[in-house]
Amino acid sequence: MKPVHYWHCFVGIQVREWLRFWQQRTRFFSALVRPLLWLVVFAAGFRAVLGVSIIPPYQTYITYETYIAPGLCGMIVLFNSMQGALSMVYDRELGSMRVLLMSPLPRPFLLVTKLLSMGIVSIGQVYVFLLVARLLDVEPPAWGYLAVLPALLLASLMLGALGLLIATWIKQLENFAGVMNFVIFPMFFLSSALYPLWKMQEASPWLYWLCQFNPFTHAVEAIRFALYLQWNPQAFGITAAVTLVLAGLATAGFRPQRTKILDTKTA
């Protein structure tokens, strides 16, 4: 196969993902409710309790809404990527996955492209969220909207790869509720999405270290810094490295027979 074949395949998968998004656009908007609730209700309620001092990348005091907005962007990517990756091997996408895996192109390429395309759709959702957040006075610099794109892509790929890895290997977590309780919620709450890590360190050093080991923390920080036009090489580097490792493990260990893609009960 030549590079042009890879390109046609890449474009085809992207197009399909956007077509599906268009077909299910009501779900797209309903999924926006969760982060907006956090931004409008949670942040308003906790603003006084969780005051934020001046920390990079911010150059002045900020509102709590401003602080959690990048974390909520991460939240959107986290939920969508994990749910998307799980659906690849468990329910909604089974038929499509069979077709995908029949392609003569290498499976790692197909799987990463698929994860990336799902990530791109969820990034569309992040931008809609950021637009609404702007109306609520969360106003990052204009160029920040562009600068944040690579961080969002990386985060979505990392979380999608994690979802695929979990779905392929851990049969006990085969429903989304299990993944919510054991993966998504711990990842989200043990991160810098809702509170700066120095606050966590004051409360509990070991929780602070758990947050530091959580790759989602670094993904959120990469998003936060990029959105405010600053480069955080540590956050970006860790997110990129974890993405590489997870994508490598997820694609190398992917076996359709470990999933429901090939329902062998019908053999």
């Binding site: 395949c9 085809g12 392609s103």
Partner: peptide
């Protein structure tokens, strides 16, 4: 068209 794309 999706299937065709998957075959390059």
């Amino acid at each position: 068209l999706y299937h065709a794309a998957l075959h390059g």
